[in-house]
Amino acid sequence: MSERIGEIIEANTNGFTVHCYKLYESPPLGSIIQSGIPTIFGVISEITTEPLDPSRPIIAIGQNEPTEDEIYRSNPQLNNLLCTRLTALTIGYSNNENFSHGLPPHPPRIHSFVYLSDNHYIESLAKSFDFLHLLLSSGTNDEVVSACLRQISQKLPDGYPFLIESGQALATELIGQFPRLNAILRRLS
Protein backbone atom coordinates (compact mmCIF):
# COMPACT_ATOMS: atom_id res chain seq x y z
CA MET A 1 0.00 0.00 0.00
CA SER A 2 1.16 3.52 -0.74
CA GLU A 3 2.34 6.12 1.65
CA ARG A 4 0.07 7.11 4.54
CA ILE A 5 -0.83 10.79 4.27
CA GLY A 6 -3.05 11.54 7.25
CA GLU A 7 -6.11 10.64 9.27
CA ILE A 8 -9.80 11.23 8.91
CA ILE A 9 -11.03 13.93 11.23
CA GLU A 10 -14.55 14.33 9.90
CA ALA A 11 -16.70 11.93 7.84
CA ASN A 12 -20.08 11.39 6.36
CA THR A 13 -21.32 9.12 3.59
CA ASN A 14 -20.75 11.77 0.93
CA GLY A 15 -17.15 12.44 1.82
CA PHE A 16 -14.56 12.94 4.51
CA THR A 17 -12.00 15.45 5.74
CA VAL A 18 -8.39 14.45 6.28
CA HIS A 19 -5.78 16.07 8.46
CA CYS A 20 -2.46 15.65 6.68
CA TYR A 21 0.50 14.63 8.81
CA LYS A 22 2.79 17.17 7.23
CA LEU A 23 2.10 20.83 6.56
CA TYR A 24 1.69 21.52 2.84
CA GLU A 25 2.19 17.86 1.93
CA SER A 26 -1.11 16.72 0.52
CA PRO A 27 -1.57 14.84 -2.72
CA PRO A 28 -2.67 17.08 -5.63
CA LEU A 29 -6.28 18.08 -6.28
CA GLY A 30 -8.23 15.29 -7.98
CA SER A 31 -6.07 12.47 -6.57
CA ILE A 32 -7.74 9.25 -5.48
CA ILE A 33 -7.27 8.40 -1.82
CA GLN A 34 -8.55 5.49 0.24
CA SER A 35 -9.25 4.73 3.86
CA GLY A 36 -10.94 2.35 6.32
CA ILE A 37 -12.38 -1.13 6.22
CA PRO A 38 -14.27 -1.66 3.98
CA THR A 39 -11.99 0.54 1.92
CA ILE A 40 -13.64 3.77 0.91
CA PHE A 41 -12.34 5.70 -2.06
CA GLY A 42 -12.49 9.44 -2.47
CA VAL A 43 -11.39 12.15 -4.85
CA ILE A 44 -9.63 15.13 -3.31
CA SER A 45 -11.95 18.03 -3.98
CA GLU A 46 -10.48 20.73 -1.78
CA ILE A 47 -7.17 21.34 0.05
CA THR A 48 -6.99 23.88 2.85
CA THR A 49 -4.14 25.18 5.04
CA GLU A 50 -5.32 27.11 8.11
CA PRO A 51 -4.54 27.77 11.79
CA LEU A 52 -5.19 24.88 14.14
CA ASP A 53 -6.98 27.26 16.47
CA PRO A 54 -9.60 29.22 14.61
CA SER A 55 -9.67 31.79 17.37
CA ARG A 56 -6.07 32.79 16.66
CA PRO A 57 -6.01 34.58 13.36
CA ILE A 58 -2.78 34.61 11.37
CA ILE A 59 -0.93 37.88 11.00
CA ALA A 60 1.85 38.94 8.61
CA ILE A 61 5.25 38.52 10.31
CA GLY A 62 7.84 38.46 7.53
CA GLN A 63 8.40 42.16 6.93
CA ASN A 64 12.07 42.00 7.91
CA GLU A 65 12.78 38.51 6.47
CA PRO A 66 14.63 38.30 3.13
CA THR A 67 12.77 35.17 1.84
CA GLU A 68 9.57 33.29 2.55
CA ASP A 69 11.50 30.23 3.73
CA GLU A 70 13.28 32.44 6.27
CA ILE A 71 9.91 33.17 7.91
CA TYR A 72 9.44 29.47 8.68
CA ARG A 73 13.05 29.06 9.80
CA SER A 74 12.79 32.03 12.18
CA ASN A 75 9.40 30.87 13.49
CA PRO A 76 9.58 27.05 13.84
CA GLN A 77 6.37 27.08 15.92
CA LEU A 78 4.44 27.76 12.70
CA ASN A 79 4.66 24.09 11.74
CA ASN A 80 2.65 23.26 14.81
CA LEU A 81 0.22 26.14 14.70
CA LEU A 82 -0.79 25.55 11.06
CA CYS A 83 -2.26 22.46 9.46
CA THR A 84 -3.15 21.21 5.99
CA ARG A 85 -6.56 19.60 5.59
CA LEU A 86 -8.16 18.09 2.55
CA THR A 87 -11.70 17.22 1.67
CA ALA A 88 -12.54 14.16 -0.40
CA LEU A 89 -15.75 13.16 -2.17
CA THR A 90 -16.59 9.50 -1.85
CA ILE A 91 -16.83 7.72 -5.23
CA GLY A 92 -16.81 4.06 -4.29
CA TYR A 93 -15.84 1.37 -1.84
CA SER A 94 -14.48 -2.09 -1.98
CA ASN A 95 -15.11 -5.11 0.13
CA ASN A 96 -12.90 -8.14 -0.38
CA GLU A 97 -11.63 -7.00 -3.78
CA ASN A 98 -15.17 -6.33 -5.06
CA PHE A 99 -15.17 -2.74 -6.20
CA SER A 100 -18.50 -0.88 -6.04
CA HIS A 101 -19.18 2.50 -7.54
CA GLY A 102 -21.37 4.71 -5.42
CA LEU A 103 -21.71 5.66 -1.80
CA PRO A 104 -20.77 3.27 1.05
CA PRO A 105 -23.41 2.09 3.54
CA HIS A 106 -21.45 3.74 6.38
CA PRO A 107 -18.89 6.53 6.52
CA PRO A 108 -15.30 5.69 7.57
CA ARG A 109 -14.35 5.95 11.17
CA ILE A 110 -12.64 9.05 12.58
CA HIS A 111 -8.86 8.61 12.76
CA SER A 112 -8.89 6.04 9.99
CA PHE A 113 -5.56 6.15 8.23
CA VAL A 114 -5.69 7.65 4.76
CA TYR A 115 -3.50 6.45 1.90
CA LEU A 116 -2.93 7.50 -1.68
CA SER A 117 -4.55 4.78 -3.80
CA ASP A 118 -2.21 2.55 -5.74
CA ASN A 119 -2.44 1.83 -9.47
CA HIS A 120 -4.14 -1.51 -8.98
CA TYR A 121 -7.21 0.15 -7.50
CA ILE A 122 -7.12 3.03 -9.94
CA GLU A 123 -7.22 0.61 -12.88
CA SER A 124 -10.30 -1.13 -11.50
CA LEU A 125 -11.92 2.23 -10.88
CA ALA A 126 -11.20 3.38 -14.45
CA LYS A 127 -13.16 0.47 -15.92
CA SER A 128 -16.40 2.36 -15.39
CA PHE A 129 -17.36 6.00 -15.49
CA ASP A 130 -20.15 5.78 -12.95
CA PHE A 131 -18.09 7.92 -10.55
CA LEU A 132 -18.46 10.88 -12.94
CA HIS A 133 -22.14 11.17 -12.12
CA LEU A 134 -21.36 11.38 -8.37
CA LEU A 135 -18.74 14.04 -8.94
CA LEU A 136 -20.86 16.13 -11.31
CA SER A 137 -23.89 16.02 -9.06
CA SER A 138 -21.95 16.78 -5.84
CA GLY A 139 -21.89 20.49 -6.57
CA THR A 140 -18.11 20.57 -6.59
CA ASN A 141 -16.12 22.68 -9.01
CA ASP A 142 -15.85 21.13 -12.50
CA GLU A 143 -12.09 21.62 -12.20
CA VAL A 144 -12.09 18.74 -9.72
CA VAL A 145 -13.59 16.50 -12.38
CA SER A 146 -10.98 17.39 -14.97
CA ALA A 147 -8.18 17.17 -12.40
CA CYS A 148 -9.38 13.72 -11.30
CA LEU A 149 -9.55 12.42 -14.88
CA ARG A 150 -6.10 13.77 -15.61
CA GLN A 151 -4.73 12.13 -12.47
CA ILE A 152 -6.23 8.77 -13.38
CA SER A 153 -5.02 8.95 -16.98
CA GLN A 154 -1.46 9.57 -15.76
CA LYS A 155 -1.58 6.43 -13.67
CA LEU A 156 -2.78 4.22 -16.54
CA PRO A 157 -0.36 2.61 -19.00
CA ASP A 158 -2.22 4.23 -21.95
CA GLY A 159 -4.11 7.27 -20.76
CA TYR A 160 -5.37 8.77 -24.02
CA PRO A 161 -8.11 6.23 -24.80
CA PHE A 162 -9.26 6.66 -21.21
CA LEU A 163 -9.54 10.42 -21.68
CA ILE A 164 -11.52 9.97 -24.92
CA GLU A 165 -13.89 7.50 -23.28
CA SER A 166 -14.31 9.71 -20.24
CA GLY A 167 -15.07 12.63 -22.58
CA GLN A 168 -17.79 10.52 -24.20
CA ALA A 169 -19.18 9.62 -20.79
CA LEU A 170 -19.18 13.31 -19.81
CA ALA A 171 -21.05 14.15 -23.04
CA THR A 172 -23.79 11.73 -21.98
CA GLU A 173 -23.87 13.11 -18.42
CA LEU A 174 -23.90 16.76 -19.48
CA ILE A 175 -26.49 16.48 -22.23
CA GLY A 176 -27.91 19.92 -22.92
CA GLN A 177 -25.02 21.65 -21.07
CA PHE A 178 -22.57 22.08 -23.87
CA PRO A 179 -20.63 25.10 -22.46
CA ARG A 180 -19.95 23.17 -19.24
CA LEU A 181 -18.87 20.06 -21.15
CA ASN A 182 -16.69 22.14 -23.43
CA ALA A 183 -14.93 23.75 -20.45
CA ILE A 184 -14.12 20.37 -18.90
CA LEU A 185 -12.95 18.92 -22.21
CA ARG A 186 -10.67 21.88 -22.79
CA ARG A 187 -9.01 21.19 -19.44
CA LEU A 188 -8.54 17.55 -20.43
CA SER A 189 -6.90 18.19 -23.79
Binding site: L163, G167, S189
Partner: peptide
Amino acid sequence: STTDNPFISEVISSSM
Protein backbone atom coordinates in the same frame (compact mmCIF):
# COMPACT_ATOMS: atom_id res chain seq x y z
CA SER B 1 -13.47 24.16 -30.27
CA THR B 2 -15.10 21.18 -31.93
CA THR B 3 -13.05 21.85 -35.03
CA ASP B 4 -9.97 23.56 -33.57
CA ASN B 5 -9.16 21.10 -30.84
CA PRO B 6 -8.47 17.56 -32.06
CA PHE B 7 -9.21 16.00 -28.66
CA ILE B 8 -12.56 17.73 -28.28
CA SER B 9 -13.36 17.01 -31.90
CA GLU B 10 -12.69 13.30 -31.37
CA VAL B 11 -14.79 13.17 -28.22
CA ILE B 12 -17.71 15.13 -29.65
CA SER B 13 -17.81 13.34 -32.98
CA SER B 14 -18.01 9.98 -31.24
CA SER B 15 -20.59 10.97 -28.64
CA MET B 16 -22.73 13.98 -29.41
